[in-house]
Nucleic acid binder design. Structure first.
Lengths: 219, 219
DNA sequence: CAGGTTACTGTGTGATTTCAGATTATCCAC
DNA sequence: GTGGATAATCTGAAATCACACAGTAACCTG
């Protein structure tokens, strides 16, 4: 693990680091991101930082802000609905495809992630919730072995992350029902449709929460 | 148009140029892409080229080849089916949303693009076919005004482009039925579902052609 | 409050360093 | 002595950096 990052080129390290910061809410929506700020913070040259930012903007995780600043985008209601639509297309399908490739070890890893997720919820740890929720879904989807759909899903999570963070920061981790248990049960039974259905429900719940928040903020 | 590219930063110019090269088949699948090769060819510095390549890899238009080489990807059958699935999710939806925003001027522009497309087919111009086919769909989808879905669609076209080129290069532009006329008719009637249906059919045809080719090549 | 100046940020270039892969040379076994 | 395999070297490209340039926004002064 450690030796992986050691031999990885800088631009990939920066990319991953920034990615995590966006995904887990360390960068707030609207917050400006400057190249030289990152250079100072992560202690690397400008070139790798520029490449990482370029990559993230092309994935929609950062946006050009009129002038030449980039910042973390804050989706409006219409954009949120687009993200929701796309996620509901892609993620149940990924879940379905993942089922037949899952080994017992994989499933127990998912169970462990879900346990850590629940622990984070119990102690009101928003960052922990975001991280383990992401890792739960990401690990499940990875098992589908489909890189095109997976890259789309990752892109969508990147766009959804900051908004989730805002809502959770406001309302806390209480009342966070998820359908992970349901998904795990179907998974153990080898019921692909059941898993897809559970994941769909899980996504719909999360989406609805943010959606209500956006509706309320809008009016 | 010309003054746009004149004031555009180099990395965007390079990005667009490479993008077109991939989209319209100037770069063959599997062909290695080197930074210094592009530097020499387009006469710009390394940094802009690196940024453009980074962006294209994050969109799946180029892939890291194990070590630090990048090349144009060649989807196998499974990947092609993923692309197909995602396109069929996204593009009919984009078409549907586009309908209500289309003005008469927009429609006549689409008609003009379709005419040029047919002219390209008639003269056996593969590159022209790819370009006008792309521009027909791209223009239609742009009118939906939905940037998230649009960026996904663009990503998928980028992944599909090289394969289309291979098939067309092999079988020529004869026997290229499309459903553009059908789509245009529904569009003029304001029939959103009809447009979505026609686009779905159009995509399915194109997909099937490549799919057969991949099946044949595989066995 | 307006005009100009300053500080800062993004952009582009070329030199330098690092690295993966291929080629060649050497050594050991047979 | 020959065949094979392993190790050292060589090559070309990628990765990084430091600097020069340009444009913008903020600030300061009158």
């Amino acid at each position: 693990m450690a030796e992986q990052t050691a031999k990885l080129p800088d631009h990939q390290i920066v990319y991953r680091r920034l990615r995590e910061m966006i995904l887990f809410g360390e960068l707030a929506p609207g917050q400006p991101v400057t190249i030289q700020g990152i250079v100072a913070e992560l202690d690397v040259g400008m070139t790798p930082v520029r490449e990482a930012i370029r990559r993230l903007t092309s994935e929609g995780a950062l946006v050009f802000k009129g002038n030449r600043r980039v910042s973390v985008p804050q989706p409006d209601l219409a954009q949120w609905d687009e993200i929701a639509f796309a996620r509901l297309c892609v993620e149940p399908e990924l879940s379905r495809k993942a089922v037949e490739n899952m080994t017992k070890t994989d499933i127990s890893h998912l169970v462990s992630l879900d346990d850590q997720l629940n622990a984070a919820i119990a102690r009101g740890d928003v960052r922990g919730y975001l991280e383990f929720n992401y890792r739960f879904h990401a690990f499940l989807y990875e098992q589908a072995g489909t890189d095109v759909l997976l890259s789309i899903a990752n892109m969508l999570w990147l766009r959804a992350g900051p908004s989730l963070r805002v809502v959770l920061g406001r309302y806390g981790t209480a009342n966070l029902p998820d359908k992970h248990a349901e998904a795990l049960a179907a998974l153990k039974a080898g019921d692909a449709d059941g898993v897809a259905q559970a994941v769909r429900g899980d996504i719909e719940q999360g989406i609805a929460q943010v959606r209500e928040h956006l509706l309320a903020a809008n009016k």
